[in-house]
Simulated assay, not measured.
Amino acid sequence: MNPRVFILAIATFVVGTVELIVGGTLNLITADLDIPLSAAGQLITAFSLSFSISAPILMHFTRHIARKPLYLMALFGFFLSNVLAALSPSYAVLMVARILSASCGALLTVLSISITTQLVEPAYRGRALGIIYMGISGSLVLGVPLGMALGNAYGWRAPFWLIAGLSLLAMLCLGKWLQPVQTPPVIPLRVQLASLKDSKIVSAQLISMFMLTGHLTLYAYFTPFLQTTMHLNAGWLSFVYLLFGLAAVAGGGIGGWIADKWGPTRAMLLIISSFAVIMASLPFTTASLYVFLVAMVLWSGLSWAISPAQQNYLIQSAPGTSDIQLGLNTSVLHMGIAMGSAIGGVVVEKASVQYNAWVGAVFILLSLACAIYSISRPVGGKSAIQAGTPIQS
């Protein structure tokens, strides 16, 4: 495996950590900036929305720029945005810093995925993408506890200083060791939009949205689910979340290995089907803590195992617009997160948190239906845009 893939994975981990890192320091931010808790919570919402919107837009407007210089410029912008967050004298400035950080982070995430596919041979692409997604999943899982630990010890601004320092270090390392990579040919916007008329590509994108919607329907309310069904105390909750995080990180790597061994299409069908079964069975395992922990590890691992296979599938299905499709998929992932959180809240309010897993499983089945439909469509529609001559950084 090309060692530069691991550097990109570390950079992606640093970027992803920022999204939820304020979740563990909301009380500190509200006290220091004298704002209500609901306003502080919008710092996460604004980040997610900006991330979702920015990815495809920035990938389009930076299509002329060579990949390596673009990556370094985005990292520098990410560094500056976190310095601004750390120095923020007011809520408004902090909000602007979060939006800028999300925009740079969205571009960096898609570039990491795109560059990784060029650094390795096709036979190892799934495993390489799995390593990148280990960085993404690890950052989302560890962001809250990391922010909480640093914030409680040194104040809420400390996590932003740490992220700024790590992003600067990543910029220096990648500037030295990242080899030149090909820049995809310039494709007119009308042609890019035409690719979304291809039912094979649209249904492939919906796989991610419904998968994350189903997952977040329960995961966004995992703590009340554990407290309601198993009456776990704070110590056990911490252990469960730690185990969940480790399984999520491992899932990305295992998913990449499965995608390489069995191919992305079979890997997607296997992972989504298994995920639906495991998620639907979770409420039945709560009678035994140990049985539940085994089921939860499978649930957590499978939640991120799908990503390498699906990214590989998108690249194969739309080779001419792969960068655009990967950017759009990043947006779709965040849309699924937002939808799952909202739907899970409705279930909790109208019924009980015990039903969240079953409602989530329904959306996983929709994801499976999209996968089956997409795989059954022929390659060569609007998505199969011929590439021109790429340039190198």
Rank of each mutant, 00 (worst) to 15 (best):
G16I: 12
I258R: 06
A361Y: 06
T285M: 11
A158G: 07
M73C: 08
L70Y: 07
F239H: 05
L72C: 09
S367M: 11
T117R: 10
E19N: 03
P283E: 11
P184G: 11
G151F: 08
N82F: 12
N329V: 03
I65S: 10
I343S: 01
L129M: 12
S273R: 13
G138K: 05
V191E: 11
P188Q: 05
I391N: 06
A250Y: 15
F78L: 10
A86D: 02
Q179C: 06
K68F: 07
R4T: 11
V291W: 09
I337L: 15
S352R: 06
L368D: 00
V362P: 00
D34T: 13
I131T: 06
Q354L: 12
A85L: 13
S352P: 09
Q118L: 12
W299A: 00
S352Y: 13
A342N: 03
N27Y: 00
T116N: 02
S103N: 04
Y290F: 15
S322G: 03
Y133E: 08
S281Y: 14
L146Y: 03
G320S: 01
K68N: 10
L314N: 03
L43K: 06
I10R: 11
K350G: 13
V186Y: 13
T116L: 06
L189S: 02
D198W: 08
Y313L: 15
M335P: 01
I324N: 04
I21V: 09
L72Y: 08
L193Q: 05
P36M: 09
V186H: 13
G245K: 14
P180D: 15
L84R: 10
W304N: 00
G256S: 06
A128E: 10
L111A: 04
I372K: 11
S167M: 10
L28R: 04
A102L: 12
V83T: 02
L58A: 04
A102R: 07
Q311Y: 13
L169Y: 12
G165H: 14
P122Y: 12
L189T: 01
A9P: 05
Y133H: 10
Q227A: 09
L178Q: 10
G155T: 01
F275Q: 03
I29Q: 01
T183I: 10
L237R: 09
V144W: 14
Y221S: 03
L162C: 05
S273T: 13
S341V: 00
